[in-house]
Amino acid sequence: MTTVATTPRGGFGYRHPRLRLAGLLTAPMLWLVAVYLGSLGALLLTAFWTVDDFTGQVVRDLTLKNFQQVFTNPAYYGVILRTVGIAVLVTLLCLVLALPLATFMARVAAPRWRPLLVALVLTPLWASYLVKVYAWRAMLAPEEGVISWFLSPLGLDGPGFGFLGIVITLTYLWLPYMVLPIYAGLTRLPNSMLDASADLGARNGRTFRSVVLPILFPSIVAGSIFTFSLSLGDYITAQIVGGKVIMLGNVVQINYVVNLPFAAAVATIPVIIVLLYLAAVRRSGALENI
């Protein structure tokens, strides 16, 4: 029997690297450029159109009228401030809750429990958003709500529907997005770093402030990008547990049938705020930690 020596040939992709790259990127680029950036561009363009007051028809002339209205009418810029305030509060609350939780998961619990703890933190994300918000409606409802029921023997009432209800519900919704990056950051923190700080004379509080927090900062910013931007764009929570309190998303929702250009102008505001936030945190190295 004879054997013929053959030189192994690379596959199709190996011989045609450009085609391989095209195969890799065509679908995601189509999605990102055509669908995502396209719709964002359309939104931005629409924001500069206007509506004929008599006919209700969209007039495709470029004007700054919509933005003027948003920033000169106190009712509207009040909503902007409130929405940003809610997003900041939710982010801070998530941080305060996530730090000890992630610390327990990453540094106190036995390593074999960690995957289970991570899974438990993720579990709420598997449930429907609406189910969770309605659950909080049942919790927050004045007088007959679960919280009120627990507080009534003390002569207290629950937070009810409104600003606080929105903050509590959004904090609950986005907490996992803050826990996970901080947890990941803490598992990457070498024990020797903490030993070294103690060895150089620092007590635990000092080590936390001077070593742990600064090293965790990019992870915290990564988490805050999620909690902040998700809160900024939310409107369903405000609708269900917000009572009379409305957020930017609600303004969009109320206007997009009657005045699409105005709704578009309002919708660009959170986008701009998030872009500003991203630009501010870009230098912290957080974007490499998401």
């Binding site: 070498p190 020797s192 770093m193 070294a196 103690a198 060895d199 070593v211 600064p214 090293i215 900062f217």
Partner: peptide, 18 residues
């Protein structure tokens, strides 16, 4: 450790990266 008059050089150096 913070109450002991000794200092340590660690195997992985443990320099603070920030």
């Amino acid at each position: 450790p913070y109450g002991r008059d000794v200092n340590t050089v660690f195997q992985d150096y443990a320099l603070f990266p920030h």
